[in-house]
């Protein structure tokens, strides 16, 4: 039958030491939609405060839609979706998923009200709906600012969500993931704004596209190069290809953002590239983590090195 495993071999029949995450595509997709929602809420608040109505409306509607999608994705990925409300039983700072649940619940409520504010003018003028119509715009304004206040947390906590696991290439990346995800969130929201907003209002989105994508690309570079053995999963296989695709798309999106000052079409193409780059990067990071969990060498080798540096654990082994 099988070859006997030699003594001191690094694994038990090549089996994984830890369990890879059982989440499906819903979670990397959520990493993208959650970031998009956060970035869009920030853009909307900035647009509101600087008098850019189309940009504001785009941001609020995008934020509400993307956070709605995020909640659906998160619930659908549960093993028991009918028990989603058990997430609201407790608030636990040691669980990034618990923290995220509360952030996204509050953010979802606020950005829903903010988006509703955009449609107040469509309500009838009289009666109770008329009262609602006069109350909604100011309420939407307050809610939009509240959503923007929560957005930086929503954009970055997902880095902690992945890192707070035994998955080697995620855990060791903990200093880098939140900023990378924050940048990706801004770049993707700027992408939607470049598609939807008129040139006259789009200048802040162009700048945000550059800043966000710069953070994202600097982050992926770090993951590919600075984690020693644990960088390998970010360079190899499907994850490596996705990460490189994200870089090409991101660079194209940045170029388009600069060149698209006078052309709606170039601006919109740049927006599409920025969104695609963010999606590719999220999936790449997710898949690299799964790869690092599946091959036992990524768990065993760094731990052995750490232990050997401390000196022999068992004195009797010399």
């Amino acid at each position: 039958m099988s070859e006997p495993a030699p003594s001191g071999s690094a694994s038990y029949y090549g089996r994984p030491v830890i369990k890879a995450p059982v989440w499906g595509r819903a979670i990397p997709t959520y990493l993208f939609t959650g970031g998009l929602a956060a970035g869009a809420a920030l853009l909307a608040a900035g647009a509101d405060l600087t008098g850019r109505p189309v940009l504001r409306r785009t941001g609020r509607v995008t934020a509400a839609g993307a956070v709605g999608a995020s909640i659906c994705l998160l619930v659908s990925d549960l093993g028991r979706p009918d028990r989603f409300h058990h997430l609201l039983r407790v608030a636990k700072p040691t669980s990034p998923l618990s923290v995220g649940t509360w952030v996204i619940t509050a953010f979802g409520t606020a950005s829903g009200v903010a988006a509703a504010g955009e449609f107040a003018s469509r309500l009838p003028r009289r009666g109770p709906l008329g009262t609602l119509g006069t109350l909604l715009p100011p309420a939407g304004r307050v809610a939009g600012l509240a959503a923007a206040g929560l957005a930086p947390a929503l954009a970055t906590y997902t880095g902690v969500l992945l890192a707070d696991t035994a998955v080697p290439s995620w855990h060791e990346a903990y200093p880098h993931l939140p900023r990378l995800f924050g940048g990706s969130a801004l770049a993707s929201a700027a992408g939607v704004a470049l598609i939807a907003a008129p040139l006259a209002e789009a200048e802040p989105a162009r700048r945000l596209a550059l800043a966000g994508m710069a953070l994202e690309l600097a982050g992926t570079r770090t993951l590919e190069r600075r984690l020693d053995l644990l960088s390998e999963p970010y360079r190899n296989g499907r994850a490596g290809r996705l990460l490189r695709a994200g870089r090409v798309l991101g660079a194209a999106g940045m170029a388009g953002a600069v060149l698209g000052r006078r052309s709606r079409i170039v601006a919109a193409l740049s927006g599409v590239a920025l969104l695609a780059a963010s999606v590719a990067t999220r999936f790449a990071i997710y898949e690299a983590g799964v790869a690092s969990a599946t091959d036992p060498k990524y768990t065993v080798t760094p731990q052995r090195e750490r232990r050997d540096q401390r000196g022999p654990s068992s004195p009797h082994l010399g």
Partner: peptide
């Protein structure tokens, strides 16, 4: 690290 990243996001916007 997430807190620092959140501040970076705010600064960028």
């Amino acid at each position: 690290r997430a807190g620092l990243a959140a501040l970076t996001v705010v600064a960028a916007v």
